[in-house]
């Protein structure tokens, strides 16, 4: 028993050491930090213990003037006067982005996976091509996207203009006026269009989940599907009653991982931000980074944002796990 135990320790040791040194201790450090006013330069003796002040001023529980007037929090929020408006902007941007982009990515990858699981010659090539973006997604690719989405000389808008020109005669015959004065989106250079733009970029790297879905589709027992066909079930019924239950574990997994990554989105917003967006792409991770690394360098404040970020992610992910027994079908049963 003991040697096995010793071997067990050996197996888990590298990960365990990493977890403690590189994640757990820094996390606890940041929790303590979030309760101080440290700016990273003053010596420890001058740093003040501020308790929950960082959290309160972030969330707007303590806007001196309003507290004095005894205005309750709910109406302060309704009046649009929470403590740190940019924090709320970042929070809502991040949640909006995650809640839209993740399900969108799920749907898109499910659809493409369904296409790719049809046994056709050349399917392997297409599979590889679809997966490729997942490997290329990096700083360079984000820069490329910003060029592609350029309102003037980007390919995307050029294609849109081509489509407009193509349908011009039809539109003219139906509505009278042509497509000449139809506007093209200004994507990253508008406070409203920047959000769809960044979702587009995000969904582009869906290759990994496509592969996961293909594998899941292959695991659906063929005899079940064939039997259903013989019984006269239509495509929708076959999907709903046979395929979907087998796909639910994958959906759950992709949702969780996708959500975690989406809530932490940093590069997309950090690299593609510009002033025309008016903070339209300000995300929690970017705001955290900005608070910590540009004047006035509020490291405690930044740590508080980090913890709220963790909490928000957990709130979006945990219900899906908690209710998984209700909707996730487990064919093998868990060990």
């Amino acid at each position: 028993m003991t040697p096995v135990r010793r071997q067990l320790c050996a197996f888990l040791a590298p990960w365990g050491v990493g977890l403690v040194i590189l994640t757990a201790i820094p996390m606890i450090g940041s929790l303590l930090l979030s309760l101080t006013s440290w700016n990273g330069l003053t010596k420890a003796s001058q740093t003040q213990w501020v308790g929950t002040a960082n959290y309160r001023s972030l969330l707007g529980l303590e806007s001196a003037a309003l507290v004095a007037q005894d205005v309750p929090l709910s109406s302060r929020l309704l009046r649009g006067q929470p403590g740190d408006t940019r924090f709320y902007k970042a929070l809502s941007n991040t949640i909006l982005f995650s809640v839209v982009a993740v399900p969108l990515g799920l749907l898109a990858s499910l659809a493409v996976a369904a296409l790719l699981s049809v046994p056709l010659p050349g399917a392997r090539l297409f599979r590889a091509l679809v997966y490729l973006p997942h490997l290329l997604g990096g700083v360079a690719t984000l820069l490329i996207w910003s060029w592609l989405l350029n309102p003037q000389f980007g390919w995307i808008n050029e294609m849109i203009r081509c489509v407009f020109q193509l349908i011009d005669p039809f539109v003219k015959s139906f509505c009278g006026s042509g497509t000449a004065d139809w506007p093209v989106p200004s994507w990253l250079y508008s406070p409203t269009w920047c959000k769809p733009a960044i979702m587009l970029v995000h969904v582009w790297t869906f290759g990994a989940s496509v592969l996961i879905f293909i594998a899941a589709i292959r695991r659906i027992p063929r005899p079940l599907l064939d039997a259903a066909t013989i019984d006269g079930a239509g495509p929708w019924q076959r999907f709903k009653n046979i395929a979907w239950p087998h796909l639910t574990p994958v959906v759950l997994f992709t949702y969780i991982v996708g959500m975690i990554f989406a809530m932490q989105t940093f590069n997309e917003s950090y690299l593609l931000q510009n002033r025309a967006q008016q903070d339209g792409l300000l995300f929690l991770a970017t705001y955290l980074y900005e608070s910590a690394f540009s004047a006035p360098h509020r490291l405690g404040y930044a740590s508080a944002i980090g913890w709220i970020m963790c909490l928000a992610t957990a709130l979006l992910v945990l219900p899906a796990i908690a209710f998984s027994r209700k909707w996730v079908f487990e064919s093998g049963g868990r060990r």
């Binding site: 910003s146 060029w147 350029n150 309102p151 003037q152 000389f153 980007g154 200004s186 994507w187 990253l188 250079y189 508008s190 510009n274 002033r275 025309a276």
Partner: peptide, 8 residues
């Protein structure tokens, strides 16, 4: 305008 010289 910003969008007219976007990226430039």
């Amino acid at each position: 305008r910003d969008y007219e010289v976007a990226q430039l």
